[in-house]
Design a protein around this nucleic acid. Structure first.
Length: 504
RNA sequence: UCCUCAAUAGCUCAGCUGGUUAGAGCGAGUGACUGUUAAUCACUAGGUCCCUGGUUCGAGUCCAGGUUGGGGAGCCA
């Protein structure tokens, strides 16, 4: 029996097993919060029902101890899940040692060191459930549309987009690299199957310490024969809409647990604006407004708001610190205020960090040089102005990957498209139409100083029935992070691998 | 690689311009309380103030170098 299935069992006796997520006791009564992976349920163990031996066993339960419990299901609207178990029997499976993660704020480093235990907390549980729903949605979307899932190799002999950022391993005495992208293999497979998608791990040795980067992440790369960039954009739009609507429909509870404002996600039914690179640059530089909003002035306003909020927070901290000092204050009230102060201090730190970053972003937006690729801050600056993802296409070909098709109407541009998630998130999808001209590809490979020999097989695809084709790649963790509005990608994957972290 | 912020109890943080014996809350332990949802009460046990060197009569506090971590740039999904 699982907590998820309690609905309809009112008045019946059931047996549940799980872990103690929380406990409170008083004389003759123990309240246990049971967590079983499907939900949470409060169980009440009463001395006069279960007898002294069982009662003492329940009373001794520590946080995260495992136990099974038998009892009657009682409806209680006040409880999470709406039910309560009134125990008739309890059996302890294993007493837990003192659980390191307490019911309070913790620092990031501490939580990451205890990731294997942190995953049990409600918020992490909700995120992982949403991640699972997104993964399922991705497969459903492509499978229902006739795509064939393909597994690209993880050991590769060639670098797809340059040799930096690769993890090198020893492959029977020769260097091999961990895959950075399955795309080139996807193109080969698309020529065999028509429409394919890869779903696998990707490795980038980027010494990045930002909220957007992982060294190991999961990437989905569809590739479609006979698609141009515009059909590609249509597909991306339908795809993202599908994923978001599935999550909205099936993960209401999880979204509520993490406090996601779903009204923003509900906007995703609207069409995604499609901007050319030229337009996007004008918006970033503040030369063109969006819905009456200007990138530069709105960011300046944001900075002012943040600075004002810092003052507010400081005042509240001072107020509460003063309050704690008043004589005869109840111990519990002191603790409550202390917890509030800790939280406010955390907020103050975050705000101060932002207030240091925003001037740099403003500077970089004002001085954006036409022809460059967008940086992380440029993406933030432009996507703050939108409430749906935007698609930026037709990039200067110099800044994009070698395999992107040159725009037939203007050879300065390549037919790449980046999808930038709203609310300041930035890039979640990168893709485009592929170059079909073998000679142009050879030129580009030389230009990028890539070893031609490693790409001969890829160039073969242009010799044997070459067709227009397009595709895109999306980072699973970035989608999860955006949909959940997480402050950092590290919470979007069970065991993040990033610069400086390999354990647990 | 660069910029920037930080490191004090198991955890989250105080510790002012250097000055006796290092502070709080949470958590833990013991006891009291029959309906709690991080707000009951009392008591108890917890410290190599990240490391190395320097300045000083005196360093948790100041300086230099290092280590580790946070955020950002570059690079990217």
């Amino acid at each position: 029996m699982y907590i998820r299935d309690l609905n309809g069992c009112e008045g019946k006796e059931v047996m549940l097993q799980g872990w103690a997520a929380n406990k409170r006791d008083s004389k003759g009564l123990v309240f246990l919060y049971l967590r079983d992976g499907t939900g949470m349920c409060q169980c009440v163990v009463a001395l006069d029902v279960v007898g002294e031996e069982k009662f003492n066993a329940a009373k001794k339960l520590t946080l995260e101890s495992s136990f099974s419990i038998t009892g009657n299901v009682v409806k209680d609207e006040k409880q999470i899940g709406g039910f309560e178990i009134q125990a008739t029997d309890i059996n302890v499976i294993s007493y837990a040692e003192e659980f390191p993660i307490a019911k309070k704020e913790h620092g990031v480093d501490f939580l990451m060191d205890h990731r294997h235990l942190w995953l049990r907390s409600q918020r992490q549980w909700a995120i992982m459930k949403i991640r699972n729903r997104i993964i399922f949605s991705i497969h459903q979307f492509f499978q229902e549309d006739g795509f064939v899932e393909m597994d690209a190799p993880i050991f590769t002999g060639n670098a797809c987009e340059g040799t930096s950022n690769l993890f090198e391993t020893d492959y029977y005495g020769d260097p091999a690299y961990l895959s950075q992208s399955g795309q080139l293999y996807g193109e080969a497979m698309a020529m065999a199957m028509g429409k394919i998608y890869t779903f696998g791990p990707t490795f980038r040795a980027e010494k990045s310490k930002t909220r957007r980067h992982l060294s190991e992440f999961w990437m989905i790369e569809p590739e479609m024969a006979f698609f141009d960039i515009f059909q590609n954009m249509d597909l991306i739009e339908n795809f993202l809409r599908r994923v978001v609507s599935d999550v909205l429909r099936d993960c209401k509870n999880e979204l509520e647990i993490i406090g996601r404002d779903i009204s923003v996600l509900e906007q995703i039914v609207k069409p995604f604006p499609r901007l050319t690179y030229d337009e996007a640059v004008r918006i970033i530089k503040g030369e063109q407004d969006v819905n009456g909003q200007n990138s530069i002035t709105s960011l300046e306003d944001e900075l002012k708001t943040i600075l004002a909020r810092i003052e507010e927070v400081k005042n509240e901290i001072a107020e509460r610190e003063e309050k704690i000092k008043t004589p005869n204050m109840k111990k519990g009230e002191i603790g409550f205020n202390q917890a509030k102060i800790d939280k406010l201090k955390q907020e103050q730190n975050d705000l101060e960090e932002q207030s240091r970053n925003i001037p740099q972003w403003l500077n970089s937006a004002r001085n954006f040089e036409y022809g460059n690729d967008f940086g992380g801050s440029d993406e933030t600056v432009i996507t703050r102005l939108f409430d749906v993802p935007i698609m930026v296409y037709n990039w200067p070909h110099e800044v994009k990957a070698f395999y992107l098709k040159r725009d037939p109407e203007n050879s300065r541009f390549a037919r790449g498209v980046d999808v930038l998630a709203p609310e300041g998130y930035g890039e979640i999808v990168g893709g485009g139409e592929r170059e079909t001209d073998e000679n142009l590809l050879r030129e580009k490979i030389t230009e990028h100083q890539l070893p031609m020999a490693a790409f001969e097989w890829y160039l073969d695809l242009r010799k044997f029935g070459s067709v227009p084709h397009a595709g895109f790649g999306l980072g699973l963790e970035r989608i999860v992070t955006w949909i959940c509005k997480l402050p950092h990608v590290r919470e979007s994957i069970p065991f993040p691998r990033m610069y400086g972290r390999l354990l647990p």
